[in-house]
Structures are given as structure tokens and as C-alpha cells.
């Protein structure tokens, strides 16, 4: 068991944002946290990452309950969050402890993997959104964490870059199989990347459903099986047009 979230609740100033959520992620599994905005997906991820310790319940990483940050976790945020005063390669080295020369070698290797070879000495202001996010992904991967937490990592990118980076993440996963927890509001993204989708719903957010996806990856976007699951998820979130029409007819 890589990540275990049990009975986690979070209140902000008396108002409950997340209510009693429990789920697990097996080692090497890609779990999607899916839900409409305001249902507390990011809150849960921040609790797992150790950036927010005001929650109730327990979170265990590799069997050890913990509060606070951990070297076993890598975080990728919605924005790249690069240090503007560091070059690309120094940004990637940010979380590394070793000697500078060793770090640079590791970072350069990883920059090659994410397709940023030759951009090592650029500053963040010179990068496009996609390149900046690739740098952020490299920064999270370079410490070789066994779990990656991704908080809507591609939602600020254009559609093409998004598809490219999703493929890249799958390739990276193939190469060393980290556990991943991806917060997303994009059902297509969840369906193409995840082994399991945890659906949160309501305000306060509660766990609504676990959807297992056994289709082999990479998956075709046009897979009829996936389309059916998508419809089900939309339906359960009350977002399907068919259901809306049904309700309208009944009224």
C-alpha cells in the first residue's frame, strides 16, 4: 500500500470542506481524484502532500502515518511554480541535496526525457506554458519519489500541449512506475491516464464512487467502453445532458 487516506475531514473556519474521505492507492497505481469544482479534491491532495496539516483523520505513506511533507512524495502543481531567478536546469535541481555537479548531470538527463534538451540555461520568463510545466515535472521527478501528487497539472495548458504531456506522463510512468494521484476535473484526462477514478461529490465533498478501469494503456479516446463509463460518470455527477433532458421532460 503506497498511500492510505482514512477518514480525512477538513474544516475551514467551521465550514466543512471535505467530509470523512477514505481511499487507497496501491504501489504503482495511477489514481484519479475527480469531481466538480469546490468538492475538496485539491484540499485532499494538499493534505497528502503535507502542505496543509489542519485535517482530521490519518494519512499513511508506505504504511507509516505522517503529517507534514515527506521525501517520498513529489508534487506537481497546477502552475509550474518555477523560481524565476533560476535557470531551467537549476530549477530542476531545486529539491536535490547532493553536490552541484552530480545534480546537474541528473537534471540534464531528466530534461532530455521531458524533451527540453538545449533549454538548460533558459530562464522561466523565456519558456512557454508547456515548457515551464515540463520543467516542473522534471523537478518533481528528479528526486525519484515513489509517489507523485499532481494537482490539475495540465488544466492551464492548451489542448494539444495537454495531450502531449499526458502521453509523456504515461511514458514516464512506464519507465519507473511510481504511484500517482492526479487531481483533475477533466473526465477525459482521468479516463486516459488512471487505473482507478475516485469520484468526489457535493459540498462538503464526500467520496461518491470508485471506478475501476482495466483497459490497457495507451487507450484510444474513441473506445466505446470508455465512452460508456464517461457517460456514467457524467450521470453520477448530474452533468449528463441526457439526464437533464429526462428531468426536463418529467417536469
Amino acid at each position: 500500500m503506497s498511500i492510505e487516506v482514512s477518514n480525512v475531514s477538513r474544516r475551514f473556519k467551521g465550514e466543512t470542506a471535505v467530509n470523512n474521505v477514505s481511499f487507497q492507492a496501491e504501489k504503482g497505481e495511477i489514481v484519479g481524484l475527480l469531481g466538480t469544482s469546490g468538492c475538496g479534491k485539491s484540499t485532499i491532495l494538499r493534505a497528502i502532500a503535507g502542505l496543509d496539516n489542519g485535517y482530521e483523520g490519518t494519512i499513511s505513506v508506505n504504511g507509516n502515518p505522517k503529517r507534514g511533507t515527506s521525501k517520498e512524495l513529489g508534487v506537481i502543481f497546477q502552475e509550474p511554480r518555477l523560481m524565476p531567478w533560476l535557470t531551467v536546469v537549476d530549477n530542476v535541481c531545486f529539491g536535490l541535496a547532493g553536490t552541484k555537479a552530480e545534480n546537474q548531470i541528473k537534471a540534464k538527463k531528466l530534461l532530455k526525457v521531458v524533451g527540453l534538451e538545449g533549454f538548460e540555461n533558459y530562464y522561466p520568463k523565456q519558456l512557454s506554458g508547456g515548457m515551464a510545466q515540463r520543467t516542473a515535472i522534471a523537478r518533481a521527478l528528479v528526486t525519484e519519489p515513489d509517489t507523485l501528487l499532481l494537482d490539475e497539472p495540465f488544466s492551464a495548458l492548451d489542448a494539444f500541449t495537454k495531450l502531449q504531456l499526458q502521453d509523456m506522463v504515461l511514458d514516464l510512468w512506464d519507465s519507473y512506475q511510481p504511484t500517482m494521484i492526479i487531481v483533475t476535473h477533466d473526465i477525459d484526462e482521468a479516463l486516459s491516464l488512471c487505473d482507478r477514478v475516485v469520484i468526489l461529490k457535493g459540498q462538503p465533498g464526500e467520496l461518491y464512487k470508485n471506478v475501476q478501469l482495466n483497459q490497457p494503456k495507451p487507450r484510444s479516446k474513441a473506445d466505446p467502453e470508455l465512452a460508456k463509463i464517461k457517460e456514467e460518470i457524467l450521470y453520477s455527477l448530474g452533468l449528463s445532458r441526457n439526464t437533464n433532458e429526462k428531468i426536463a421532460k418529467e417536469a
Binding site: 521525501k71 523560481m83 531545486f94 528526486t143
Partner: peptide
Amino acid sequence: RKLIEVGKAYG
């Protein structure tokens, strides 16, 4: 604050 969070995430 977001940059500080990155630092915190790295402990």
C-alpha cells in the same frame, strides 16, 4: 506564497 509552498514540499 506558492513558491514558498514548493520549498515546503521539498522539506
